[in-house]
Design a protein around this nucleic acid. Structure first.
Lengths: 239, 239
DNA sequence: TGTATCCTTTTGTTGAACAATTCTCCAAGA
DNA sequence: TCTTGGAGAATTGTTCAACAAAAGGATACA
């Protein structure tokens, strides 16, 4: 028999799904997606007038959205000049990976201490990524790889860690553009993700953390070198 | 002789100090401070009309501020009902301390790996806190204690870690209201902070991390019990 | 007691207006 | 040629007024 207390607790956990979204939030989601997808490359200025007209929302509503994106570090707001899609520096990439290292390994440790791992979503992400890889859809692989890591963090069951990881990955995506969907970059990580799942299944937590650490170091190195090559070549980014 | 490149690099590092603030940002700062100071206790609804009139800003500008505060988890935005100063649950406190644990200990480890510690600001915070304690200004002690921990994180020299800690502490302050400036709560931590500084000075990093961990566990326990006592008594906070 | 219906209040969103700032371009001067 | 100045255009910053939409509260009725 279920107590009233139990019922209300279950329902309380469903509350987030109930929350409707205002126009500003929906606009934010659209812009976040489009920035991730590369419609607005780093450095682009987001014009209030043109975007507002395109989406059919007023400038005021759009400005609320811009504030939110600014708080997520996806755009930089310069007074009287507007908002610009963030251009990450090499230092940013290093800082982001350092934080990623902290978050992901901490999440695994917390999850390990807490009890049996609920690996369903983690495995699903890996399998979807493998399927996408088999079909040659490498930019989807990129997205699913990030989702895999998001699910890793979700194992810790910490709302703030989840949110933090979400924002971090959104920001990191800005740097991934230089790799846009190249097979050579993504393919090895498919194998490594699979390996990590195996380790987690066998409860080899320490090894999984170690593998994760190596994974992130390699990814950072590769990304940085591609990044610096990109930055040296095309636009001479003002001094 | 200094090259032009060197000059511009130096100046570029000064850029943040140049950034002026818009009205919305300044309003956000004011509200953040006042929420921390307790002018708006948790659960309070922030009325657009009355606050806008009090500060002499328009509703639109104020709404931009509210969005920012919402993103910092200081207020919760409910569609068509307005923004309310966040009411933390016991689970929130646990989640916050878990994250604090991660951030602060990681910061110490990073700082230790990086090289010699620049303890100036850390020591300054402790000494100011001790001075405030000697004068019986216990709510200032509370603020300076938080600043001490902010400076601990600053040792890692990571912009994102800094920002993360800043937001985390702002949120945690919501819970601290139940302790409002009580000497019994704060006094022991003065001693412990001093002890931690000593350990850091002697480069006993491992011991410092251990002390930090114990510190946070104790603080969480005390805060939680005061918190639950508070919550049980006065307002019957929804089912 | 419960519930259906009004009225009031507050937020959600828009559009227009004007001030303040930045950008662009061109001409004058060294 | 390069720098400096400045006029005008374009864009953002902020306010205001208006109305739609939703939530909250009160009243009348079964």
């Amino acid at each position: 028999m279920t107590s009233m207390r139990a019922v209300t607790t279950v329902l309380a956990n469903e509350r987030p799904r109930l929350a409707r979204l205002g126009t500003a939030e929906r606009v934010t989601e659209i812009l976040r997606e489009q920035i991730a997808a590369g419609l607005f490359p780093p450095g682009t200025r987001l014009s209030e007038e043109s975007i507002g007209e395109a989406l059919g929302v007023s400038r005021n509503t759009l400005r609320e959205s811009f504030r939110l994106l600014g708080h997520e570090n996806l755009v930089a707001h310069e007074l009287n000049r507007g908002v610009f899609v963030r251009v990450l520096t090499a230092e940013d990439v290093v800082d982001l990976y350092q934080l990623r290292q902290i978050i992901e390994s901490s999440a695994l440790e917390i999850a390990g201490r807490a009890g049996p791992l609920e690996l369903g979503p983690v495995i699903a992400a890996v399998e979807q990524a493998e399927a996408a890889g088999a079909d040659g859809r490498w930019d989807e692989v990129a997205t699913l790889d990030l989702q895999f890591h998001q699910e890793i963090v979700a194992l810790a069951q910490s709302p703030r860690l989840d949110e933090l990881m979400r924002r971090l990955l959104a920001e990191l995506r800005l740097a991934f553009h230089v790799m846009h969907g190249s097979q050579e970059f993504h393919e090895p990580y498919l194998v490594r993700n699979r390996k990590m799942v195996t380790l987690l299944r066998r409860k080899k937590l320490d090894q999984a953390v170690q593998e994760l650490r190596a994974y992130l170091e390699d990814a950072q190195r590769e990304l940085l070198s591609a990044f610096r090559a990109e930055q040296a070549a095309p636009p001479s980014q003002g001094t």
